[in-house]
Design a binder for these strands. Structure first.
Lengths: 342, 342
DNA sequence: GTTAGCACTCACATCAACAGAGTGCTAATA
DNA sequence: TATTAGCACTCTGTTGATGTGAGTGCTAAC
């Protein structure tokens, strides 16, 4: 059932007002706030309808109304449709480029938290689809080797390999050539165990040691750095009384510290790149149980070509969706500037 | 002025009781609790004296007494003297060894937080005194090289170097030999700019590019990974009402998120290795302003030989100092087992 | 030096009274 | 027929009075 225009405007007025104040909003307020020129009595009738339809609820008799999840959802959907309405007023997040990926992510999270006044999280970009640029095996000492792997986007991974018996220089050289000629240019995704065993054949040497080393290298390449998630602005929740009683605050902080669930949530957004790449979870819609009083807005971002991750903003259900979404878009622009058009 | 034995015992009784309950403790409680067999009236007189001496304070007239910072200090000092009193009852923290340093630290913080019910922090171990084991420069592509540096304790650092013009293979080989023969076995601390310029001389080549590369390598080696601090158990503060009103909790969380100040605090402990390596900051004693309602216990730890860092436990002033300290000692033992006697 | 006894203080809980915001309903109005 | 004024009703939150209990300090007796 479609709401008529007047009901829609009233609903929006209620929600806007509630976003600002956090207090249930009454009919008189709406009567004065909007340019509908309706008396509070009329508004009351309409509100009664809206409640029946499930868009707003009353915390208790004789209180004003607050939006229900369904109400928020309608509001957000409507907002997303009339996209790019006004020009962004704020147009600089003061983002800086950092050399180390870790720092960059941490900084993005921090800047976003400062700009939105909500908690933020960011997952490290995936690079499984990125191509291998360089791989090298070197002997450190008798029993240890180090494998250095550079992937497009200048992600550097390294792993110490323990070997029971040292390989001689010639073998190492051979292995390096073998690895580079066969694996360079392939994406991490494409390097699988079958390929490694083919390499073992090609190596011609059937020594166990070489075989072990190759296995270890393969593992290094494919190991996913899971759970690499950075958060910031956790203490922003204290700005929203509805989230900051002891129990809720403690749960909230715990969830953000554990990160396991955040990872799942962020990964979920990862598929939805077709549309704007921005996803809004309102209340119960989020898969994280402890966040059912919150809303989460997620967006994919991209640093270098192909290096995509997800960023999320967590706040009360009455968060300023409009600002959050436009800030996220702005962030993406700024990242594009920093990483592409330099 | 030295307290007589009876006053001391009363003070201890007050503190022990307060540690448990968090409530101001009155004379009647002490009268019943201790085996001194004194009436509450006598205790009252003694308490009056203790208050005059500054060891305890009254939140308001007609409330019991709570320990002052000075009182806690005396208590802790006394406790530290009669060391190793009883055997540790709990003797396993269920600590596991992790391959990646980062994970290891995070895990230690988490385990400690779970065992103590306080917030914890841990700084990455310093390795400036560790010796360089291996260094290698490799060309990734036309404009980029990667420097891989392995230090004792298997710390691996790597840095991408941008070069305007590619070096030929021969030069790279030469540089690698040069770097390894001259720098291996030296501690990071010992590698300074003078040494690098000597190397430049020895290189015999006076090309700017080589010189730049050497500078970049030197920088990579010496760059301190500052601020590498992991925290855990932040939400434990909600177990202590005196720390978890909105303002305080928000400040607390903020301090733990920012990490800058934590780093300074942890570094401060680093010097004091002579004694037990365990330091207790009570209330105002901590250099962190926002933690003046907390106590912090810090301890140095060691993973591999020479790789020392600091760990800290943050809780209310009425934290269970005894348990915290013995847990920290236990932790050190377990780390020793994991890293040395394997 | 220790203790019983007592008056006194202060925080905290309970409760009634009340103000205020908001609603739903009814009857009047345009 | 849609809108509105008016009114009774409901519920929350505040305020102030009152009482209770834990604890103290002091004095006088042991």
């Amino acid at each position: 059932m479609q709401l008529d225009d007047r009901k829609m405007r009233i609903l929006q007025a209620i929600i806007r007002n509630y976003l600002e104040t956090g207090e249930p909003v009454g009919s008189r307020t709406i009567s004065k706030f909007t340019d509908l020129n309706l008396s509070s009595a009329t508004i009351r009738n309409e509100m009664s309808d809206l409640e029946e339809l499930g868009y707003i609820v009353q915390p208790h008799t004789s209180a004003g109304r607050i939006p229900s999840d369904k109400g928020y959802r309608l509001y957000v959907d409507a907002m997303m449709e009339e996209k790019e309405r006004q020009v962004e007023e704020k147009n600089d997040l003061l983002l800086q480029k950092e050399d180390k990926l870790e720092r960059q992510l941490q900084q993005v999270a921090k800047v976003l938290a400062a700009n939105t006044e909500y908690a933020t999280m960011i997952s490290a970009p995936r690079y499984q689809k990125n191509k291998l640029k360089f791989i090298q095996l070197s002997r450190v000492d008798e029993h240890q080797m180090v494998a250095v792997i550079v992937v497009e986007g200048n992600i550097i991974k390294n792993n110490m390999l323990q070997v029971t018996q040292a390989l001689d220089d010639e073998t190492i050289l051979k292995l390096n050539i073998l690895l580079n000629t066969h694996l360079n240019g392939l994406s991490i995704d494409e390097i699988n165990l079958g390929m490694i065993s083919a390499l073992k054949q090609k190596a011609g040497i059937h020594s166990d040691i070489v075989s072990n080393v190759l296995d270890a290298v393969a593992e290094s390449i494919r190991t996913e750095e899971d759970l690499e998630i950075y958060t910031s602005g956790v203490n922003n929740i204290f700005k929203y009384p509805e989230l900051s009683d002891h129990t809720r605050a403690s749960e909230f902080i715990n969830t953000l510290e554990e990160k396991q669930q955040l990872a799942e949530l962020l990964h979920e957004t990862f598929g939805t790149e077709e549309n704007t790449g921005i996803q809004v979870y309102i209340g119960d819609e989020t898969p994280i149980q402890t966040m059912k009083d919150c809303s989460v807005v997620t967006a994919t971002y991209e640093l270098e070509e192909g290096m995509r991750g997800t960023i999320g903003i967590i706040g009360p259900k009455r968060m300023d969706y409009e600002k959050v979404i436009s800030t996220l878009k702005l962030l993406r622009n700024q990242l594009d500037v920093l990483y592409k058009k330099t």
